[in-house]
Design a protein around this nucleic acid. Sequence first.
DNA 1: ACCGACGTTGGG
DNA 2: CCCAACGTCGGT
Length: 771
Amino acid sequence: NGLTRSSGVENGLTRSSGVENGLTRSSGVENGLTRSGGIENGLTRSSGIENGLTRSSGIENGLTRSSGIENGLTRSSGIENGLTRSSGVENGLTRSSGVEKSLTRSSGVENSLTRSICVENSLTRSSGVENGLTRSSGIENGLTRSSGVENGLTRSSGIENGLTRSRGIENGLTRSICVENGLTRSSGIENGLTRSSGVENGLTRSSGIENGLTRSSGIENGLTRSSGVENGLTRSSGIENGLTRSSGIENGLTRSSGIENGLTRSSGVENSLTRSSGIENGLTRSSGIENGLTRSSGVEDGLTRSSGIENGLTRSICVENGLTRSSGIENGLTRSSGIENGLTRSRGIENGLTRSSGIENGLTRSICVENGLTRSSGVENGLTRSSGIENGLTRSSGIENGLTRSSGIENGPSQYDHSVHSHSSTTTTNGHNHHGQCCAVTMDGCGLTPVLDYTAEMERYRSFANFYAKTNVNMNAVNSMNFPQSAKLARITPPMFPGGRLGVAGVTPWGCHDNVNMNINAAAMLWGRKPPVHQATPLAPPTTHPPPLATHMQPHPHRTGGEGKQHGGHASSSQGQETHHHHGNNNFLSGYTTTDHMTKQGHTHQDMLSLSDRNSSCNGGGGANGVNMPNFPAGMLGLPPGVIVMAMGSHNGVNIPDSSHFQMATNHNQMLSDCHHANQTNSSPCPSTSPGMTSGGQGSGASKRKRKRCGVCAPCRRLINCGVCSACRNRKTGHQICKFRKCDELKKKAGSIQLESPPSVPSGEAFRWFF
DNA sequence: ACCGACGTTGGG
DNA sequence: CCCAACGTCGGT
């Protein structure tokens, strides 16, 4: 009962088959092929096409329409009750397949590829696109929309109930993968790459970006937002319930990874790099920075904040429960590393270097310094403070339980001018502390005050930490379950710096000789009664005796004490060299590379987010090409077995190695799999043979039992029947699963016991996820 | 090897 | 009881 009509066609083929009550019409076609098959009650229409191929198959009650296309390919297959429409396309490819009750629309496209695959009840729309690729696959009840895009790639895949929207993009790549109930939105982007993958219930939004890369992956219930960025790279990965926000950035790199319940925010930054990684329950914030590098990594429950900085480098590494803050700095370097429960603060500095490293429970503060160098290293439970200094040098190194204070100095001590006369400036030099009090420092009027001050500061901080922790607890409570993923999420185990052991080890952290000649205004101050008083209070409760380092290491099983010690001296000395680099170099990027190299500590896991090739397409990231992820232990975000990597068949858009796909994938596997024995065997998520049978002797002929789908192979991951294969067409009588969903394991002979490859998906397999 | 069909299983 | 899907058989 169908109507098939062809008119004004020249050398074209118009074919309708298996149609019931449908209308198939082709008009104004030239040299084109128009084909409709397996349609029921559908309307298929092609008009004004030239040299194009328009094909509809396996549609039920759907409308497929192509109009005003030139040299384009429009194809719809396996659609049910959907509307697929292409109009005003030129030389483009528009394809819809395996869609159910959805709307797929392409309009005003030129030379582009618009593709929707395995979508269910969703809306996929592309409009005003020029030379762009818009692709949606494996979506369920989601909205994918691209509009006003020029030469861009917009791709959504494996999404469930999500909204993916791209608007006003020019030459950009927008990609969403494996999102569930999430909102991914890109708008006003120019030449940028926006990518979201492995997100669950999250909001990922990019707007007003120019030539930037925005990427979110492995996020669960998180908000990732980038706005007003220009030529910048914004990346979030492995986050759980976190908020990552970048706004008003220009040519900057903002990266967050391996965060759990944390807030990472960058705003008003220009040409800078802001990076947060391996943070747990921490707040990392950068604002009003220009050409600066702000980095936080391996932080736990810490607050790292940078604001109003210009051309400065602010870095926090391996901090635990610490507060690192930099504000109002110009061309300065502020660095904190290997700190535990410490407060490091730099304020109102100009062209100065403020560095704190290997400190434990210490307070390092620099305020209103100009062209000065303030450095603290290898300190344990010490207070180092510099304030109101101009062109002065204040250095503390290898101190244990000491107090170093510099204030109100003008044109004071430099590295080779050792005349320190200010009574308020005290420096301990001895790298070796003979016995606790040997190199202790005393100062008039400073006996107790600093202690109180420090205590107050730490209390303040701790209250913050507690507050923040509580906040997150509540946050978690809302989400009920403790995230199942968190257990699987690679533990955040940044290799720690040698910490307070630096000085003890006898290694001069900076490799400088001047300390020996320093005028020592040695004064004793015994505020080093550290352990019982305030240090061991809230954060490191009962364990007083084990060396602090060991204590610290405890929660990080991946790290070995030997490792820490082994690299201890090396790392510190490297930092010393690095210092010089930075000092003489205004370009943070160059020093940046050096730094990374040094802090890598021999780990080969560099650039775990696989920035690599993406940099080439991003100005901001370009400079950071050599950037490595410092201090990430082998286990951190490596790809464990079971990783799935989805590239959606496109070889050019691949860049899969995104570490973020890690656990999420595994979880997803189990979710999709109907096998629930995953935890019974750790080697294989789902035994091919039911546990009960165990045909005693040999699995040879036995196994008459019905086998289960493995749940992890590519076909098993498919959600929707193709609707066009033989199995689908003969569903009523055939009782067979869709050909494209047939488990790879079940395809094999029943007898063949697979000894080798466990269900971990071979990388190649993942590429066929939806095909 | 592929397809269609039937009997049957296992889960909801 | 229903449904999805596995195992298997026979035909091409």
